[in-house]
Design a protein around this nucleic acid. Sequence first.
DNA 1: TTGTATGCGTTATCAA
DNA 2: TTGATAACGCATACAA
Lengths: 349, 349
Amino acid sequence: MSSLREVAKQANVAVSTVSAALNGTRPVAAATRARIELAAADLGYRPNLLARGLVSKRTGILALLYPAPNRGFGLTEMQFATSAAEAASEAGYHLLLSPDKSDPVAELRHLTGVGLIEGVLLMEVRLDDERVDHLVAAGTPFSMIGRTRQPAGISYADIDFAATARDAVDHIVGLGHRTLAFLNHSPDAYAALYGPTVRCAEEFAVAAGDRGVEYLGDLHADSVEQGRAAFEWLATNRPDVTAVAVMNDHAAVGVLGAVADRGWRVPEDLTLLLVLSSVEVARMFHPRLTTLEPPSAELGRLGARMLIDQLQPDAGEGKTPRQQLVPCRLVVGESSGPPRRGAETGVPE
Amino acid sequence: MSSLREVAKQANVAVSTVSAALNGTRPVAAATRARIELAAADLGYRPNLLARGLVSKRTGILALLYPAPNRGFGLTEMQFATSAAEAASEAGYHLLLSPDKSDPVAELRHLTGVGLIEGVLLMEVRLDDERVDHLVAAGTPFSMIGRTRQPAGISYADIDFAATARDAVDHIVGLGHRTLAFLNHSPDAYAALYGPTVRCAEEFAVAAGDRGVEYLGDLHADSVEQGRAAFEWLATNRPDVTAVAVMNDHAAVGVLGAVADRGWRVPEDLTLLLVLSSVEVARMFHPRLTTLEPPSAELGRLGARMLIDQLQPDAGEGKTPRQQLVPCRLVVGESSGPPRRGAETGVPE
DNA sequence: TTGTATGCGTTATCAA
DNA sequence: TTGATAACGCATACAA
């Protein structure tokens, strides 16, 4: 409420001196500085961000761009947002929540056009993402949670899918399993270009290959019914499969249901792994599922930090983008066990 | 990027005329208005929000205050945020995410002090809430999702707990139940003043009384173990109880586990109700649980709308606060059934 | 070491 | 109907 001018008057100095003293932007005599700080504290002075931003082009506002929650915006995505907001707040920045509905690029153009935004934090980045192209072209500082197919030169924090897959495969190999089925998201237009969907499948295949584990990909389920169907198909056609990794929580519900219907039990007859789900969710199952929990909070925090680092004036133009991968945390639940005996029998072909 | 001045030059008029034409703030000749609009579109003009806010005190930015997600930040809370953001965006406003960590009032003072915020949307409102007191005292426009003990004069959108409890009780009465146990949150310092915790318990008691259903309150569980313990206590001491309503998802997991251990089944031997959980969550259970789903998206939207309405200049000072209650949606799952036969036997005392 | 003056892009108050 | 012009609160180049 109180302006720089009022502080100046109260401290008997010029406005510019107050500004300098408070921002440390030029040397100020210790005595006057003390007077100024006293006056400022006394009046409860707060610099007006609008005025400051108007002249300095630095608003301290970051935009978090997330897709409209058509595709399940879950706990994980929320964690990105809240931890990013927290990291921003710790650095003196503010985070603006920007749902991009129909036209993300238009929304982006608007946000930067009105001079509100200093930088953008991108969520739910796809392998090919028009938002990225636009931001690069416009020269707007940004960083990503997730990454495009070719993220060279762009700051991002993403899941280390390779390490995650290795951990998962090592886990089941340690239990004695020799085959692994991977239930991915349904191959709709979205999943086809969605980073986690694509990369998880790839890296699980690689990790399985490295460990000599037979890998069954090409299975998909995004609902209870589809999960159920997928397991039934497996039980019929590949009864030798002893371990299943599932990307979608509801699909896991279906698998568990089908397993029970068949008179099987988890983990005695089947080892079930949740991929990219929080322990919070894994705990809702009975038995408590083993899960690869995404480092959501850390990714959100990292993404925000990276963006903020870019915005620091001393960062210069020759700044190297930071790119960081963080593996999921393997949290072993009650759904992990050795393969059932005699699983080799009944292998078709 | 391009300023009002450039548009003015291009259209051969004064800046003030451009401003007037674009904002409709004073009559402008049709011809010149056309010229101006053409020039503006041509240059891709966007009004600078900082400059505008500096003079008009209207920034178009709303702050969403939410508690640091220590206490389970679930799907529900997430929905508030996203739907509020969406509603704000539709009205041309922006939503700032403000985690209030240690000192919410200081955070609030900061936000309004720097002139960034036009109004505040409060989440997780408690029966006695210092943030509310501060906002009222400071004269900052705000609205609440949830409400305090005495919300007179303040705009809010909250759950209609009375209607919700009635629906729930009617549901089980319709099935033939005569007793209902209510598993509330654990009575820690937080829950003691948390609206839903308190109001749900009260209204369930009232609704049960109205329908002649025996009500067992004073039960609490916020974890799997506590849920398990609670059910075991019930089975031992009140084997006549045939229906249980649970506030906490994890507690429900515990109840289900204990039910199974006892050789009982849901819904044959016990009807289980989730209270204030999304179907998304209810579906994760086996059997799929009946739930009273909170109208999160609607509340978020309503809260934002109410705040925005307050901010309209034509709202005047004599504006009546809007207060709206929305009941939960009863979604019947597979955990609802008639009471088991012979439940009356074995009633202690 | 400090003060003066100018401008950032708008809106709003005047005259014209 | 339109055009100057003064704020809004701050940062900064320049003068003292």
